[in-house]
């Protein structure tokens, strides 16, 4: 595994100012993505996953959102301090992005082909003909049958799954080094979801690009990711290698997320839910933000923000009882053995 990350996010903070005051959507988020690695960003709706991705891309509305960070290093560029011109050159070429909603992320009045070759035409000096040929190639690569005909179709002629394949093709059109996939399968049927994830994995193993996969499904993470970043209420709750997190979760929130995912093997059990809901961004608890919903909370949890505690290797958790949790998780395994 490479040591130099392709993307290094340090101390990312994003605030939105509106009529009701200022809300901190993302607060001090730091993580690394190594080249060729798939990093899963997981959390409930509203935990700041998408905002993190949009902040990295510099796509948040400038009039309401304020993005600060120590740095967001991508391939030698500091994205927080990059000019809009520089960002435009990176977007679509070095960093691709897939959005959640395939139904609305394609322009209804433009042909698939025109939208597919748009980033190629923006970033490369290449004839329309050559770009078109590349578009056809991309469409067949993402598994769209009769790609030449599809190039001349309009988005409404395609199903949701097909459109998302087109979105993937668009994101891949300039062979990016990093792909930000914001819940790429959430809006689709389960069978289509699996197909698309397989497609992403297949392309990833071929191109060796890094992927930040945003999702709220632990299943997706288990299937795809090398590393996991668990977000809760704008902060990182826990991060580490995927096997580590699944075997020895160091944060009660991660544990809760896993317990509300059904398992296909073993005895069916009643799924547990995490009681309560995300705190409102305008009324955040002073200490650990998960404390009000946490079964293991101690009085000290409410006092101050818990530090990231390093566990084994790169595994770290923002829970003061992380060590206990990890130790507890290790025990039943031994009992089984």
């Amino acid at each position: 595994m490479q040591t130099e990350p392709i993307l290094r996010v340090e101390g990312l903070r994003t605030t939105f100012s509106g009529d009701e005051g200022t809300a901190v959507a993302v607060d001090d988020v730091s993580f690394d993505v190594n080249a060729g690695e798939i990093v899963g960003l997981i959390g409930e709706s509203g935990s700041g996953k998408s905002v993190t991705a949009l902040a990295i891309m510099g796509l948040l509305p400038k009039d309401t959102a304020r993005v600060t960070a120590e740095r967001i290093l991508f391939d030698g560029h500091d994205l927080v301090r990059a000019s809009e011109r520089e960002m435009r050159r990176l977007r679509g070429r070095a960093i691709g992005m897939i959005f959640q909603e395939p139904m609305s992320s394609l322009n209804p009045v433009l042909k698939i082909g025109d939208q597919l070759i748009e980033p190629i035409r923006i970033h490369e000096r290449i004839s329309h003909r050559a770009a078109f040929d590349r578009g056809v190639e991309l469409l067949s690569k993402v598994g769209i049958p009769s790609p030449i005909q599809r190039m001349n179709d309009y988005p409404h002629q395609l199903s949701g799954g097909m459109r998302q394949r087109v979105m993937i093709a668009i994101a891949l059109s300039c062979s990016p080094k990093l792909l930000l996939a914001d819940e790429p399968t959430t809006a689709l049927d389960v069978t289509i979801q699996a197909q698309l994830l397989d497609l992403l994995l297949e392309i990833q193993s071929e191109t060796k690009m890094a992927i930040v996969l945003i999702t709220h499904s632990m299943g997706v993470i288990a299937e795809c990711a090398d590393k996991v970043v668990v977000m809760y209420s704008g902060r990182i709750a826990e991060q580490g290698p995927v096997t580590e997190i699944f075997d020895r979760p160091g944060h009660p929130y991660t544990k809760g997320l896993m317990q509300c995912t059904p398992e296909l093997t073993g005895n069916p059990r009643r799924l547990t839910t995490i009681p309560g809901s995300l705190p409102s961004l305008s009324a955040l608890p002073p200490g650990c933000r998960f404390a009000p919903r946490c079964g293991l909370a101690l009085p000290t949890c409410e006092a101050g923000r818990p530090p990231m505690i390093g566990l084994r290797g790169t595994h770290a958790s923002a829970c003061i009882r992380a060590d206990e949790l990890v130790a507890a998780a290790a025990q039943p395994e031994e009992a089984d053995a």
């Binding site: 796509l59 050159r89 691709g96 959005f99 992320s105 009045v109 433009l110």
Partner: peptide, 26 residues
């Protein structure tokens, strides 16, 4: 406000290009 405008921006399109090609035709 529609998502494809964001998608175009994510593809590296500039403001005038987005206005002319994505917004006005709609």
């Amino acid at each position: 406000e529609l998502e494809f405008v964001n998608a175009a921006r994510a593809a590296g399109a500039g403001d005038l290009h987005i206005l002319r090609r994505h917004i006005l035709p709609n």
